[in-house]
Design a protein around this nucleic acid. Structure first.
Length: 1107
RNA sequence: GCUCGAGUGGUGGAAUUGGUAGACACGUUGGACUUAAAAUCCAAUGGACAUUAGUCCGUAUGGGUUCAAGUCCCAUCUCGAGUACCA
C-alpha cells in the first residue's frame, strides 16, 4: 500500500470542511484556549512559501491543545482594506471590492490545501460592512469619551459635561489639548452650543485638529510615521513632505504610561517590548520656564508692567477714572487681592493691549474680570477679548458680580487655585523647556530654540533679524533626510535676545539651531554644554562659555554625561550633591519659584486617524456648521459609497469627494445617505444631517479589535455578546511578524485598554503570549552576464565555476573565451560581468541551470552565447534575499503541496529552524521530511497492506515511544517545533529498526504526529480502525517508568578530554565507580604510569581523571 | 551612535541546570537493486596526521574562572533587527 499523499490530503480536507471538525463552541464545559494568527492582507500575488510559517506553528499548537482536551478557537480572516487594491483600482478602474474578493478566494484555496484547523465559521473581513459597522461603532465610543487623570481611565463624555455645568473646568484633571482655557460653570452654561462642542472636542479621545502630517503627494494621502522608511513612503518609495491638515486624531498619548506598565504583565518577546518602550519614549525630568529679558519692538525698553498696546495712552486716563469709581463687586474683590493678600501682587484697572482689565497678576499672567449683567448680551465681544488676552500670554477667568458679593470665599479659592497651577504660559513671557537634567541648571550658558519655534521671530532683535531669517530659510530648505544624514555639521544663529536664569538671574543668550527639534518636548532646550555633547559641540563652535559644574571632572575635551558619577559643583545650593538628590532639590526650588515642575515627557504622539483614501472604513460622521456629529449607532454601518474615480478630486479633496451620494439626511428615526441636492431640497424642519466625512480610517482601525470580534463574529446587535466575551476573555497565544511592533500591536493595546475602561472587555491586555515568527528568506539564483554595449554581440552567460577560474586552472575555457571575443574585436580580460537574477525554479539541487527552461523563460537567453562547464553544465550561484517577485526567488506552496504534499510542507517549514529565527528556504531539503513521512507510512503498511498487529509492545518500543512523548511535549511547550520534528524522525527510525508492529504503540504515534502532519495522521488513525477524527483523541500520557535505566555508559575523560566509554550500573556508589574506572586497563594505558591527582566522579554523568 | 539579538561542519541546524560538541536532515562520496533512470536500501562524511589500535587541532578572536566552558566572566571583531540630533 502506497503513501498516496495527494489523495489522502484531499480526502481529509473535505472531511474536516463537511464535518466542521474545528468549529469552536462559545459555550463548552471544556477549558477555553484561543490561538490567533495575525490575519493577512490578501495581496494579488497570493501566498508564497514564507507566509504559512506562523500559521503552521499556531496550527500545531491549536491541534495539540485539542488533544489535551481544550475547547480551542483558532479563527482566521482578512485585513482586506488597504492601499494595493486601491492603487490597482486607480490604474484599471476595477473596484477594489472585486479585486479583494478574488484575492481572498486565492488565499482561501491556498490556505485550505495546507490543512489548517481554522474555524472558518468565524471568518471576518475588515472591508465587509457587517464587520466595519463595529469599527465605526468603536469610533463613536471613543469620540464619546474623555480621559480622566484622577481615575486614570476613559470615561463617558457626559461625566465631563456634568462637571463643566457644576464647576467649570478648573478642577478637571484631563488629558486634553494644550491650549485649553479656563472657564467657570457660569461661562459653560452661557456658551453657545457650537462653543460647547468646540470645547468638548479638546477633551474627546478622538478629536479633529489641525496637525502637521506626512503628506505623500504621489500617493495623494497622509502616511503614519511607521509607514515611512528613510524619509520616503514604505510603499512605492515616494517622497514625503510635511503639511498642515485638519485630521482626526486618537489621543493615544493619554495611555502612554499604561501602555508602558502593561508590558510587564504580558509574555511578549523582549525585543518587541523594547521597541514599544522606545517608541513610547518616557523620560523623566522637569519643565522649566526661563523668562525672556529683552523684547524687541520696543517692549524691552519698557518696564515689565507696561503691557499696553499702541493706543494705551488714550486708555490710561479712563483707567484711572475707573479705579476711583469701582463697582461694588470690584471694591469687594480688590480688598482681598491688594497688598499681596493671596501671595501675589495684583494690579487693578490695568491696560493690556487695547483693553483695560479689571484685575491682573502680572507675575502669573492671570487676568480676573468681574462682569455685570450687561455682559450676557456681549458674549461674542468677551470671547474676542479673551482670545486677544490669551494671545498676549494671559489666562482669563471671569466672575459675575453676584458671585463676588454673595460668595467671596469661593471666588478667592478659585483664584488661589489658578495662581497655584499657573506656571506662566508659554508665550510672550517665557520659554518653556523640558530637561532630564534639572540638576545641571547652573551649567546653562545659553538656550537653543528649534528654528521653527513660534517665539523666534518675536524675540529676535533688529540687528540679528537678517541672520536669523536666513538661517530659518536655509533649514527649511533642507529636507528632513538631509538633516538626519548630516548630524556632524553644527549650525545655528543668535537671536540677540536673552532669557533670565531662574536662580542666578543672569542673562542667558538665546540661540536657534537645527539640532533642536520642533516636534519633541517644547522645541526648546536649556543648553548645558558641560553635560551634553550636542550642547558642548554647539558652544565650542560658536565660542559660547562652557562653565564646569561637575566636581573633579575634566571637560576640556568633551561633555560629561555620566549621571551615576555626577557630583555637582559651582551650583549654589546644589553644591556637593549627587545627581538624584540635586535633581530633586532643583525641582523643589523651581516649584517654589513657580518657574518649573517635575515632569514626565513621552515621545509618543497622538495618532492621526484620517486617510485620504477610498478603500477604507468611512467615518460615521457628518458636519453641521463645521462641527462633527456622530451618526446614531442604530444607523450603522455607513457603507462606503460608489465613486467613478478613486483619485482625489480636482479640488484636492479625498476620493470620497467624488461620491454623488454622500450627505446624511435624518428625520426622527429614519436616516439615509443621499445626494447633496436631495439634502438641500429637504425640509430643514426637524432635520438632522449634513455633508459626510470625506476621509476614511487608516489600516490599523480594522485590525485593532478583530481578535475580540472573532469571539462572536456574526452578532448583528452587539460587537460581541457578554457571554462570548466572558468565556473567551483574551488571546492565549498570538503569532505574527515583528514588523507590527509599533503599529498594530501598539494601537490594539490602546483600543483594548479603552474598551476595558468603558467596561466592554474584562482584560486590559488582549494577548497573554505573543510569538514573532521569523521570516523565511529566498535563495536567489544568479548567472554571470558579460557587460557589452554592442548590439551585434549576442548576450553572453558564463557558468559560475568557469567564471571564477583563471587561465592556469582551465586553459581550454580561457582560450575559448579569448577566441570568441576576438571575433568582435574585444579583449577577453577587459570584459566585465554582472550577476543577474534567474528564476529559482530553473535550478536543481546541484545548482545546475535548466538551459531549455531558461531559453523559454526569457527572450534574452534564447540566442545567447553560453560558456558551460567542461561537462556541459551551466552552474548558477546563490544569495539569500527576501522572497520577492522581482528577485525571481518565490516558491509557491501550491507546487510544493502538489509534489510533496501539505504534510511534508508543514513538517519542513518547522524543521528549517527555530520559529523566531529568519532562515533561508531551500526546496531541495524537503526530501528529508517527505522521506520521513514515507518511512512513517511503511511502519504501518507494506506492499501487502497493514503491518500492525495486536501484539504487545516490547520494552524497547515503549522506551522509544515514551522518550518521544516526553520530548515532544517539552518542545511544544517551548515552541521548539524544529527539534520535535527530529524527535519524530529518531522515533520512526528506532521503531523501524525494532520492527515494531504493536498497534497500541502505532496508535499513540499517530496522535503524536497529528498536530504536525494531520492528514497522514487522520488516515493512519482511520486505518487503525477508528471511526472518529483523530483531532480530539487524547494525547498519549507520558510514563516515566519506561525510561528507567539500570546502567549508564559513562564517558571517562582525562583532564577534561573524553577518551573512552565504560558501561557501569547506575546504582554504584561514587567510590565503586572510581574503583571500577581506575582498575580498567584503558585507564592504566592512558595514565602511562602517572598517579592521578584527583578523580572526579559525577554519578549518572561523567568521570574525569586529573593528572 | 544607542538598544536588542546572533556568530557551531560544505548547508539548515542540535547540545534543557557548565559534564561525551556536531543530534536530525540536506548535500557530497562509495556501494546494492535496475538495460537505464527514478524510487528504495546500506556505508562513509569537522580538519590534519596515522589509517591497526591511535594522536593533535577544532563552537568569531584574545584572555580569565573551573576537575570540566559552545554554555559563566572580561575585552575585541563581524553580522542581523529596531531606533535615531529625544534635550
Amino acid at each position: 500500500m502506497q503513501y498516496n499523499f495527494n489523495e489522502i490530503e484531499a480526502k481529509w480536507q473535505k472531511y474536516w470542511a463537511e464535518n466542521q471538525t474545528f468549529k469552536a463552541e462559545n459555550n463548552s464545559d471544556k477549558e477555553k484556549f484561543y490561538v490567533l494568527d495575525m490575519f493577512p492582507y490578501p495581496s494579488g500575488a497570493g501566498l508564497h512559501v514564507g507566509h504559512p510559517l506562523g500559521y503552521i506553528a499556531s496550527d500545531i499548537y491549536a491541534r495539540y491543545k485539542r488533544h489535551k482536551g481544550f475547547n480551542v478557537m483558532h479563527p482566521q480572516g482578512y485585513d482586506s482594506f488597504g492601499l494595493p487594491a486601491e492603487q490597482y483600482a486607480i490604474q484599471t478602474g476595477q473596484h477594489p471590492a472585486i479585486t479583494t474578493a478574488e484575492n481572498i478566494k486565492t488565499y482561501r484555496r491556498q490556505l485550505d490545501q495546507i490543512g489548517f484547523s481554522f474555524d472558518w465559521s468565524r471568518e471576518v473581513r475588515t472591508s465587509d460592512p457587517k464587520y466595519y459597522k463595529w469599527t465605526q461603532w468603536i469610533f463613536i465610543q471613543i469620540f464619546n469619551s474623555w480621559y480622566n487623570k484622577d481615575t486614570d481611565k476613559a470615561e463617558d463624555i457626559s461625566s465631563l459635561v456634568a462637571v463643566f455645568e457644576k464647576e467649570g473646568n478648573a478642577s478637571v484633571n484631563a488629558v486634553c489639548d494644550d491650549e485649553v482655557e479656563a472657564f467657570s460653570a457660569a461661562d459653560w452654561n452661557s456658551f453657545s452650543d457650537k462653543r460647547k462642542q468646540e470645547v468638548l472636542l479638546q477633551y474627546r479621545l478622538t478629536y479633529l485638529a489641525e496637525t502637521e502630517v506626512n503628506w505623500c503627494p504621489a500617493l495623494g494621502t497622509v502616511l503614519a510615521n511607521d509607514e515611512i522608511v528613510n524619509g520616503v513612503s514604505e510603499r512605492g518609495g515616494h517622497p514625503v513632505v510635511r503639511k498642515k491638515m485638519t485630521q482626526w486624531s486618537m489621543r493615544i498619548s493619554a495611555y502612554a504610561q499604561r501602555l508602558l506598565d502593561g508590558l510587564e504583565k504580558i509574555d511578549w518577546p523582549q525585543p518587541l517590548k523594547d521597541s514599544q518602550t522606545n517608541w513610547i519614549g518616557r523620560s523623566q525630568g522637569a519643565s522649566v520656564v526661563f523668562p525672556i529679558l529683552t523684547f524687541p519692538k520696543g517692549k524691552g525698553t519698557k518696564p515689565g508692567y507696561m503691557t499696553g498696546g499702541n493706543n494705551s495712552h488714550l486708555l490710561l486716563e479712563r483707567a484711572k477714572e475707573m479705579r476711583k469709581n469701582p463697582t461694588q463687586a470690584e471694591a469687594v474683590l480688590w480688598e482681598s487681592l491688594k497688598g499681596k493678600n493671596l501671595g501675589d501682587k495684583f494690579r487693578r484697572q490695568h491696560v493690556i493691549s487695547d483693553f483695560i482689565v479689571d484685575f491682573v497678576c502680572l507675575s502669573k499672567c492671570l487676568v480676573i474680570e468681574v462682569d455685570g449683567a450687561i455682559h450676557d448680551a456681549q458674549k461674542e465681544q468677551d470671547e474676542e477679548r479673551t482670545a486677544i488676552l490669551n494671545e498676549n500670554g494671559f489666562k482669563v477667568i471671569r466672575f459675575k458680580n453676584e458671585e463676588v458679593i454673595g460668595d467671596i470665599d469661593n471666588v478667592l479659592a478659585t483664584i488661589q487655585k489658578h495662581l497655584e497651577n499657573s506656571v506662566p504660559p508659554m508665550g510672550a513671557r517665557g520659554i518653556e523647556v523640558f530637561t532630564t537634567r534639572p540638576d545641571t541648571i547652573f551649567g546653562v550658558s545659553f538656550m537653543t530654540l528649534a528654528p521653527e519655534h513660534d517665539l523666534v521671530l518675536q524675540i529676535t532683535t533688529p540687528e540679528q533679524k537678517a541672520e536669523v531669517e536666513a538661517y530659518i530659510e536655509a533649514t527649511a530648505k533642507r529636507s528632513e533626510r538631509d538633516r538626519m544624514a548630516d548630524v556632524k555639521t553644527i549650525s545655528g544663529a543668535f537671536t540677540g535676545a536673552y532669557a533670565e536664569h531662574p536662580f542666578s538671574k543672569e542673562p542667558i543668550p538665546i540661540w536657534i539651531g537645527d539640532y533642536v527639534l520642533a516636534g519633541y518636548g517644547t522645541g526648546a532646550v536649556m543648553s548645558v554644554p558641560c553635560g551634553d555633547q550636542r550642547d558642548y559641540d554647539f558652544a565650542k563652535h560658536f565660542n559660547i562659555p562652557i562653565p564646569n559644574i561637575f566636581e573633579g571632572v575634566d571637560i576640556s575635551e568633551e561633555a560629561f554625561a555620566d549621571k551615576s558619577k555626577t557630583v555637582i559643583a559651582n551650583s549654589d545650593f546644589l553644591n556637593g550633591l549627587p545627581y538624584k538628590k540635586a535633581m530633586k532639590l532643583a525641582i523643589y526650588e523651581l516649584e517654589k519659584l513657580g518657574q518649573g515642575e517635575g515632569k514626565i515627557n513621552y515621545r509618543l504622539r497622538d495618532a492621526v486617524f484620517s486617510r485620504q483614501r477610498y478603500w477604507g472604513e468611512p467615518f460615521p460622521v457628518y458636519y453641521v456648521d463645521g462641527m462633527p456629529q456622530m451618526i446614531a449607532p442604530e444607523h450603522l454601518p455607513i457603507a462606503l459609497p460608489e465613486v467613478e474615480k478613486y483619485l482625489p478630486t480636482e479640488t484636492g479633496e479625498p476620493p470620497l469627494g467624488n461620491a454623488k451620494e454622500w450627505h446624511w439626511l435624518q428625520y426622527g428615526e429614519e436616516g439615509k445617505v443621499v445626494s447633496e441636492e436631495e439634502f438641500n431640497n429637504s425640509s430643514p424642519l426637524g432635520r438632522l444631517g449634513g455633508a459626510l466625512e470625506l476621509n476614511t480610517m487608516p489600516g490599523w482601525a480594522g485590525s485593532s479589535q478583530y481578535f475580540n470580534r472573532y469571539m462572536d463574529p456574526t452578532n448583528d446587535n452587539e460587537i460581541f455578546s457578554k457571554e462570548a466575551m466572558n468565556y473567551w476573555q483574551d488571546v492565549d497565544l498570538y503569532i505574527g511578524g515583528s514588523e507590527h511592533a509599533t503599529g498594530h500591536l501598539l494601537y490594539s493595546r490602546f483600543w483594548q485598554k479603552f474598551m476595558f475602561d468603558r467596561g466592554f472587555v474584562p482584560k486590559d491586555e488582549f494577548a497573554k503570549k505573543l510569538i514573532n515568527q521569523g521570516m523565511i528568506t529566498g535563495t536567489s539564483a544568479f548567472v554571470y552576464e558579460a557587460i557589452v554595449s554592442d548590439k551585434n554581440i549576442p548576450n553572453i552567460y558564463i557558468s559560475s565555476k568557469v567564471f571564477h577560474q583563471d587561465s592556469e586552472e582551465n586553459p581550454k575555457h580561457w582560450e575559448e573565451k579569448e577566441e570568441f571575443f576576438k571575433k568582435y574585436g574585444l579583449v577577453s580580460k577587459d570584459i566585465k560581468y554582472r550577476s543577474i537574477h534567474i528564476d529559482v525554479n530553473l535550478i536543481n539541487s546541484q545548482s545546475e541551470v535548466d538551459i531549455e527552461g531558461l531559453k523559454k523563460w526569457r527572450e534574452d537567453f534564447l540566442d545567447a552565447k553560453y560558456f558551460f562547464e567542461n561537462d556541459g553544465k551551466m552552474l548558477a550561484h546563490h544569495e539569500v534575499e527576501k522572497m520577492s517577485k522581482s528577485k525571481y526567488n518565490v516558491v509557491n506552496p501550491d507546487d510544493i503541496c502538489a509534489e510533496y504534499g501539505a504534510d511534508s510542507l508543514r513538517l519542513y517549514e518547522m524543521f528549517l529552524g527555530p520559529l523566531e529565527q529568519s532562515k533561508p528556504w531551500n526546496t531541495a531539503g524537503i526530501t528529508g521530511t517527505h522521506g520521513f513521512l514515507k518511512k512513517l507510512w511503511r511502519l504501518y503498511f507494506d506492499d501487502n497492506g497493514a503491518k500492525f498487529t495486536d501484539s504487545a509492545p516490547t520494552k524497547d518500543n515503549l522506551k522509544t515511544l515514551h522518550k518521544t512523548i516526553k520530548k515532544v511535549e517539552e518542545d511544544i511547550a517551548n515552541f521548539s517545533f524544529n527539534t520535535s520534528v527530529s524527535t519524530f524522525m529518531i522515533c520512526v527510525n528506532e521503531l523501524s529498526t525494532q520492527k515494531c508492529t504493536s498497534k497500541s504503540v502505532l496508535e499513540s504515534l499517530a496522535i503524536l504526529v497529528s498536530p504536525y502532519a494531520p492528514h497522514i495522521a487522520e488516515e493512519l488513525w482511520s486505518q487503525l480502525g477508528n471511526s472518529e477524527s483523530i483531532s480530539t483523541a487524547p494525547f498519549p500520557a507520558f510514563d516515566a517508568s519506561h525510561l528507567v535505566e539500570s546502567s549508564k555508559e559513562y564517558p571517562i575523560s582525562f583532564n577534561g578530554k573524553m577518551r573512552f566509554k565504560l558501561e557501569l550500573p547506575l546504582d554504584m556508589s561514587k567510590d565503586q565507580i572510581e574503583e571500577a574506572v581506575m582498575s580498567h586497563e584503558k585507564t592504566t594505558q592512558q595514565l602511562q604510569g602517572r598517579t592521578p591527582k584527583k578523580v572526579i566522579v559525577v554519578p549518572g554523568k561523567i568521570v574525569n581523571i586529573v593528572g
